[in-house]
Amino acid sequence: MKTQRHSLYMRWLLKKINQFFNRRGTESLPVTFDWRRIYVLPSKPGLFFATIWFLMMMAGLNFNNNMSLMLVFLLFGLAQVLLYRTFFNLRNLRLEQVTAQPAFLGEDINLKITVGSNDQKWQIFAVLDNTETVSNIPDQTAQLTLPCPSIHRGWQAIPRLKFFTRYPIGLFTVWAYCIPDAKALVYPKPEIPCPDYPHHGGADGQQTIPIKGDELSSIRDYRQGDPIRDIAWKKSAQSDQTWVKEFNQVRGKNLLFDYTQMDHGSLEFKLSRMTAWVLHAEHQQAEYQLVLPGFDSGMSSGQAHQHRCLQALALYQPGNQS
């Protein structure tokens, strides 16, 4: 990391600068970026332009070559006009909405950012860490999608967003920061490959190991204990690996995933495993029930049910059993 090499003083300075940038804290949307919160600096091409411009000016002044000086001053005026143009291209940009689809830990959260403006705006970048995305606002609103790394399970606050533009020529970078008052739900990371279902029974107390159906659903690697008759001989013969056929489960199985009945592994491991079960059960269109201390989903299936279960898993805190 680059920052680690900075001296103590530099780190202190960076911290102070960031404190200044973040002085508004989290803000509820919509936020309009007015002139007070817009920052301007020359971009890299801008600095190069300045260097060439300076050389040209020195030559022009030295020889009092008036046409050269004319060009030099024309470019200076141009730079000034461009500064304004770039500034006005960002001014009064509205950050209207930031929403995030739930994501699994380790995956990127997809942020959907809605920006709006009363006038036309071009080349508006949204930046988060190292990823950026660009859009125009030709008419009132536009949407940007940004991936945001997921850091921890549960509600994750959306980090500071940066919006910048270099339109029209790219000599200046004009930017603004905003920490939107929005958060993303991060589900636990599902265990891969999905382990077998637990033996602690379904709602009706029956055996919950999935019964094989007739329909071939997928082919996977051989795992210890797979019955010989499931081996996909044709495919295995064509490759070095041994492949096993998986069959769709008969619909209507009732599965129970109970946290308290899982005895080994850390908290996160258990949640990860349960997440995998929920996903797998939903994929197989089985009915399932998730029981956590303080939460009981009931026996059901469907997207909404899955979401409820996953949300419970995402937000589960061991101490919180109310």
């Binding site: 909405q97 929403t99 959907k112 950012i113 809605t114 008419d139 009132q140 609103t141």
Partner: peptide, 12 residues
């Protein structure tokens, strides 16, 4: 029209 358009671009 603007209202109708906003329903189409709304993120939710």
């Amino acid at each position: 029209q603007l209202l109708v358009k906003k329903t189409r671009t709304h993120s939710e």
